[in-house]
Amino acid sequence: METRFSSKLVNAVRKGPLHAAILLICLIWFIPTFGLFVSSFRPANLILTTGWWKAFKPPFVFTLENYYKVITTSNMGRSFINSLIISIPSTVMPVIIAAFAAYAFSWMKFPGRDALFLLLIGLLVVPIQMTLIPVLRIFNRLHLTGTFFGIWLAHTAYGLPFAIYLLRNFIGELPVSIFESARLDGANHFDIFFRLVLPTSMPALSSLATFQFLWVWNDLLVALIYLGGTPTVAPMTVTISNLVNSYGGGWELLTSAAFISMILPIMMFFFLQRYFVHGILAGSVKG
């Protein structure tokens, strides 16, 4: 017992600094979010005059008015729906296309395969800003600007290089003999893709989908450029950024609006945490 206790103690002391650092980082990340959360329930005049921590001293004044106002007057409801309409296809499309592409890049032989893959990897380093004007001009000509379809295409294209790269790493690592065995079993490429590769790649596909969804959901730049601020199509990020402009210092509305936009990503994180972590490690750690 004695030794077990002391070894535990040694362990705790040794790992102490690590744990302290992690706690500190968590706090640094968490405090602003928590402040935002508290502020979103405070009346406008209090937000402007005192810090959010004062909310925990009497008089305890909390209100739902900010949420009410944002949802009813500033198009947040519509924007929430728009964000979903934008994000879901913009996630599904690149993941599916990337899965097909990753399979082809890993397991099909065709001329120029490696060159094409290298080109694709090269696209990873092209900054998005460089593409905005040329793509916008093409979109204008094709009348895709301001349409959901246009932004689906844009997000799909921007997401594909990384998506293919990530999935190829995963799908390419599946053991060769499984594919050979399937071929002997009588499977063609479609059988192999749909019945073997897709089911076994679920972890990679889910983590990729999580990433892509969060990126599209939080995106302001691409939406602003290709959709503009039209209320019928604007996602939440655009609407929130407009809040600042139209209301000047409408802090109290910003806080609640921001929190509404965070709900979905936070929920996703909690439910898909496992895949999220897996996705970060994908490619770097085997197994």
């Binding site: 003999s177 499984i178 399937a182 076994t200």
Partner: peptide
């Protein structure tokens, strides 16, 4: 003749079972 039509079956060293 493609592998699937050769009327053969093969057992692999690492078993090659479908994991899912």
């Amino acid at each position: 003749v493609p592998p699937k039509d050769r009327d053969i079956a093969m057992v692999f060293q690492n078993y090659a079972l479908y994991p899912h």
